[in-house]
Amino acid sequence: MSINVENVVVEYASRRVLNGIDLEIDAGEFVSIVGETGCGKSTLLRLILAEEHPTEGRVQVQGRERSRPDRTCGYVPQRYSLFPDKTVLANVAFGLEVTSGFWNRNSREFREEALRYLRHTGLSEADAKKYPHQLSGGMQQRVAIAQALIMKPPVLLMDEAFSALDPGTRRGMQRLMKELWRESGTTVVFVTHNTREAVCLGTRVIALVKDGERGSSVALDLEVPHLDFDSDEEELTRLIARVESASVKMDRPASMAVPVIS
């Protein structure tokens, strides 16, 4: 098992945000997490990242609890994903260089590897010399994905990574992401508020649903069939509507979702 979230509760100043979240994610899965704004999707991601710690319960990645973020999880946030002072190539090679140790540094080798990853994500050698502010939003996220994947993390966490992109670029990035996931076999946890994106990308869709009485969120594993971008549009629309209705209400149809909390 890649990620194990056990009975997790998160409270901020006596306000409970997450309430008894249980979640098991197997290695190689692509899990989409959906939910309304403020339901705690990003909080759950930060817990897996070990940037935050639960008030109760525990979160294990690769079988161990961690005190802070490390190389176990790659991370692609919505914004500020690249280091502005470094060129695109230096951004992608950064992880390799910083982990190589002072005496084992082989910049040329690392840069060649970085260039290979950049090409793989659809960027050219000319782009490699640019600074992040000289790239479009879509290109920046391509670099961010290459930067994370070059370290071959067992888990890749993406927090609304494509939210700021225009629809065309977003579709391209979704296809690229799915392709990279298939090739790398990395476990991906993808937080999004876009249901279509969640359904088309994820092999599994988890909804964080606000409990009407308590205001805190619980996790529901929506047992939806996995669809692809080329699936029948009618079937896709029907499924999106079902997911959306299930992820905003607690009194969902029993056939639609299976709660993964006790």
Partner: peptide, 25 residues
């Protein structure tokens, strides 16, 4: 904060993040 978290996930330690990410920025 994302920049610091990113640094950790790329394998940078406390001082690498301090000097190679934050100070440079």
């Amino acid at each position: 904060r994302e920049q610091i978290v990113k640094g950790f996930t790329l394998g940078a330690g406390d001082f690498a993040i301090t000097y190679r990410i934050v100070l440079k920025q």
